[in-house]
């Protein structure tokens, strides 16, 4: 649904050039929820703004729903933009228009006739649960309500793709949760493809099927969340399951075990203790239900050196776990 290849964007200024996006390749399949994580200044917003050509890339191609956007003339680009919804961290609503007026604006822009607008606005407000607040002005709404207006507006033209730049960063955890639930619901009911940017792990945990970690304009890691979790040394896996635990234990082998998908339901620690008659200890760990999968990560201490535990570790791998020896 979204195909990006070799994307580059440099900001030029007197103070010097900043390479914001430095060769990014990205494919987001239909109905997928793709999350891009990264520190401040990594180039996430620039990447997103290149998808609907709010920023013109210097190199590379972007196509959405089979339409190559980089080469389009102004008019064609405007039409293509109707199929790409976007939501913003600070909502970006028109303060001079009511909730209904803001949604209607999106319809006016797409050229929906006046007579149809009313029913469509009502539909959209119903979809995001804001029917009661239709005549309120944005200044009278809570952050969560404003973002719902933003979402309704983004969906006005029945886009196939939704871009989201830190849509929940200005919201408290509970409101974030309700917005994420709404996005997930839209993704499932409308088959909406979502490309989102965030610095919050919860967002990835809750709704992303795929994710990428961005640093200095590049993707350092990217793929399906379930696969990334199994990938040795994955930053994402580590950040998704942070825990405090000792790195080494005298006289024992410390191993990090990550399981995901159906394997997450295997009682691996019990199996291990029973089969190898080992006094396995749990040093730390978490289990999470992610959007696409269930997963867990533990740090275990097995008595004895790595050699003595070779069979036990091999057995863990056959159970589908990703095993890394910490010390």
């Amino acid at each position: 649904m979204i195909e990006i290849s070799g994307l580059r964007k440099t900001y030029r200024s007197k103070a010097g050039d900043v390479v914001a996006v430095d060769g990014v390749d990205l494919t987001v399949g239909e109905g997928e929820v793709f999350g891009v994580l990264g520190r401040s200044g990594a180039g996430k917003s620039t990447l997103l703004r290149c998808v609907n050509m709010l920023e013109r890339p210097d190199a590379g191609t972007v196509s959405v729903d089979g339409v190559e956007l980089t080469g389009l003339r102004r008019k064609r680009l405007r039409l293509a933009r109707h199929t790409i919804g976007m939501i913003h961290q600070h909502f970006a609503l028109l303060s001079s228009r009511t909730v209904a007026g803001n949604v209607a604006f999106a319809l006016e822009v797409t050229g929906v006739p006046r007579a149809e607008r009313r029913t469509r606005v009502a539909e959209l407000l119903d979809l995001v649960g804001l029917t009661e607040r239709a005549e309120a002005y944005p200044a009278q709404l809570s952050g969560g309500q404003k973002q719902r207006v933003g979402i309704a507006r983004a969906l006005a033209a029945r886009p196939k793709v939704l871009l989201s730049d830190e849509a929940t960063s200005a919201l408290d955890p509970e409101t974030t949760e309700s917005i994420l639930r709404l996005l997930l619901d839209l993704n499932r009911r409308l088959g909406l493809t979502i490309l989102l940017i965030t610095h919050e792990m919860t967002v990835v945990k809750r709704i992303c099927t795929s994710a990428a970690v961005m640093r200095d304009g590049r993707f350092v890691e990217s793929g399906r969340v379930a696969d990334l979790l199994r990938q040795p040394g994955s930053e994402l896996a580590r950040d998704l399951f942070p825990f405090e635990a000792p790195e080494s234990v005298p006289g024992a082998t410390v191993v990090d075990v990550t399981v995901s998908g159906e394997d997450a339901d295997t009682p691996i620690i019990a199996e291990l203790a029973r089969r190898f008659d080992t006094d396995v200890r749990i040093l730390g760990g978490t289990v999470e239900t992610l959007a696409a999968t269930r997963a867990g990560r533990w740090r275990l201490a097995l008595p004895g050196g790595p050699e003595e535990n070779r069979d036990a570790l091999e057995y863990l791998r056959t159970l589908g776990a990703r095993v890394g020896v910490a010390s």
Binding site: N52, L54, R81, H88, H90, A92, L93, F105, A106, V109
Partner: peptide, 10 residues
């Protein structure tokens, strides 16, 4: 932001 939002809407 608001201008960008309108631009993004086409």
């Amino acid at each position: 932001d608001v201008v960008a939002a309108a631009t993004a809407m086409g």
